[in-house]
Design a protein around this nucleic acid. Sequence first.
DNA 1: CATATTTATTTTACTGGTGAAATACCTGTT
DNA 2: AACAGGTATTTCACCAGTAAAATAAATATG
Lengths: 194, 194
Amino acid sequence: MAAEDGRDAGGAGDGAKDGAGDGSGDGAKDIVARVLSQWRRVRPELDTEPMAVIGRLTRCVALLQQAEEAPLVREGLARPEFDVLTTLRREDREMTPGQIARETFASGAAVTKRLRLLEERGLVERRTSARDRRVFELSLTAEGRALIDRLLPDQLAYESELLSGLTEAQRSDLSAILSDLLVLLEGRLGGLRG
Amino acid sequence: MAAEDGRDAGGAGDGAKDGAGDGSGDGAKDIVARVLSQWRRVRPELDTEPMAVIGRLTRCVALLQQAEEAPLVREGLARPEFDVLTTLRREDREMTPGQIARETFASGAAVTKRLRLLEERGLVERRTSARDRRVFELSLTAEGRALIDRLLPDQLAYESELLSGLTEAQRSDLSAILSDLLVLLEGRLGGLRG
DNA sequence: CATATTTATTTTACTGGTGAAATACCTGTT
DNA sequence: AACAGGTATTTCACCAGTAAAATAAATATG
């Protein structure tokens, strides 16, 4: 856990501990099921369906994010820095701070800070661009690249382990539905910003 | 980029912009699909399945969280404060700061700060408990309760709207799978903390 | 019943994010 | 070529969170 997130609950007001009657899952009750049944009791006329979805989404991600960090922090990296490194690795080209910011959905200021850190640690290099002297071209150092290449398989194995309780079919359904949702949200919200 | 959350990418190192071949969704390509195909190009031997799931989860939540806030901020509330209020509302009883912290998955210190704010705004009241003078009993004021009762339907309608692009079947599948995942994660990770 | 331990909450010092302003540079227009 | 406007990045002041220490009260133990 440690450093970290704190990203809060979800749906339309969540947070809970234990299970009680719901209607969407079917095995053991999850935290959100209890929240839903509480609402059903105090405000029975509300349609809480969005909470069943969004609340669970949010809580899953909150839990995953605590968990996911484990292999990272072992290397003294936080998730946002890791994301910068993996972005550079998979794009496989020099990138500017602005591109990194857009790709990682971070603010410019945040990227500036992360880059300072990563440079100090010798994982990333910056080179002033020849044609546009406002921008910097960033690249992984050999060490940065080696770190990611070493860390990524561990990270993936760890994540795979976290999901291993779902069946293959569940994982692929989940991927597919989330992909649709993501496209919808990108369309609706992506437009509002960049 | 501008305003913003900053909640970062997902899977095992994400962040992207545009679509390219994947294998899990089927309609238009989402951001994560592009990330996956980039990895396939530079590290073809990696099994990126966890990223397909976790990356999408994380990104959906990041987008939803930006979006979700809208009705709240209109009332000058941030999500964490809203969560405190909704928790009190749906539990429908006096609660202590510690209980609120556990329910909302926040640290004690964070709750202390939020309560100070909510008290100042006259939305929450604290009463020193008779039997245990270490604790405070918190309750919504009439105003706090009215605010939540007014806000919650808007919030739910707004969230419902965000999900309206999915079919009823997709939403309920999503709920069900996430419920299973949540139970798994709670078991595995919930144990590590409280 | 005194004292050690545990539990509840707040305080403190600090960190990493944010939006807005500052800085530096490019580009298009006249 | 001068300059208005736009874009890239960093700096700034600030805020909300965190972990750990401080405070205070309950409970358990000898």
